[in-house]
Structures are given as structure tokens and as C-alpha cells.
Design a protein around this nucleic acid. Structure first.
Length: 137
DNA sequence: GCCAACGTTGGC
DNA sequence: GCCAACGTTGGC
């Protein structure tokens, strides 16, 4: 999963552009997770800040390469993402928290982390929630 | 807008 | 190498 403020680079923007270079990450934990990404991996796309919901699924179209925006020598990396599909209905942080089965997700436990792995089971649960809708229309 | 959580920096 | 101070992030 990757997190982004919708004002910064929204899912809609990703759809419009067709791809994005995911760079500028300056957190070692996030960097290490980015290095583990492989081409074809599916990536949940989360809008933080005001929205606080997962809105779509992207795929990794280029695995980790040196971040061209890095100005130091700490091994920062970037990946390229392409949009795969929008979620049927967005899955909110509230839904995930109230569900109870995903309390050990990084998303819940470590809110500041911007790039994180999601287990297969949690991934499936999120897609399931998306299919079920949020009950609010 | 506030504040808790977390990461980083720098003095010792 | 520890830890206090500071900065940043993101949920509330």
C-alpha cells in the first residue's frame, strides 16, 4: 500500500497521467519496503489526510531504482506505478478499524508510514469490503 | 488547528 | 552511544 495526500497526487491524477514515478520517500522503513516491490505487484492506493480511504489499485510497472530526486547518498529509491482499477467503493480507515480483523495492519498501527506491505488476507478483506460497499450509498 | 507518535539531529 | 530537543506526519 502507498499513501498520498489527494492534494499532492490523487488517484484521479494517476488515472489521468497513466503512471507516476513514486519518488521523494525519505524514510528508511518505507524505502526498504519499496525495494521489495516487484513488477506486477498490486498496490493499494490510499488517500490520507482529509479523505482517509483506499480508493484504487495500482501495479508496480518498474521496480526500485535510484531516486533521481535524492540529494544525498542514502540509497533512496523510486518505483513506477500504473493504475490498475478503482475500487468498487472506497474502503475507509474507519471501516478498516471498526472491522476489527485488520487492527495489526501497518496502516492502523503505524499511521505515519507511507509505504507498507499488506498481507494477502488483509488485501482480500479490503477488496471484500469494497465489494460490499460502505452502506452509505 | 491540535496533538500524539515517530524519526532525526546534535550536544555531551 | 545516549537522550533531549526538534521537525514532520497524519488522525482526530
Amino acid at each position: 500500500m502507498v499513501k498520498v495526500e489527494p492534494e499532492e497526487f490523487s488517484w484521479e491524477q494517476l488515472l489521468q497521467d497513466g503512471k507516476v514515478i513514486w519518488d521523494g520517500v525519505r524514510n528508511y522503513q518505507a524505502r526498504n519496503f519499496m525495494r521489495e516491490m516487484s513488477v506486477g505487484d498490486q498496490v493499494l492506493y490510499y488517500h490520507s489526510s482529509k479523505a482517509r480511504e483506499i480508493v484504487g489499485i495500482a501495479t508496480v510497472s518498474e521496480a526500485a531504482f535510484p531516486d533521481p530526486t535524492a540529494e544525498d547518498d542514502k540509497g533512496w529509491v523510486a518505483v513506477e506505478l500504473k493504475p490498475l482499477e478503482a475500487l468498487k467503493t472506497p474502503v475507509s480507515l474507519d471501516q478498516i478499524k471498526s472491522d476489527g480483523r485488520m487492527d495489526d495492519m501497518y496502516l492502523v498501527r503505524q499511521s505515519r508510514l507511507s509505504v507498507m506491505p499488506v498481507s494477502d488476507s488483509h488485501y482480500d478483506m479490503i477488496l471484500q469490503l469494497s465489494e460490499e460497499g460502505n452502506g452509505k450509498g
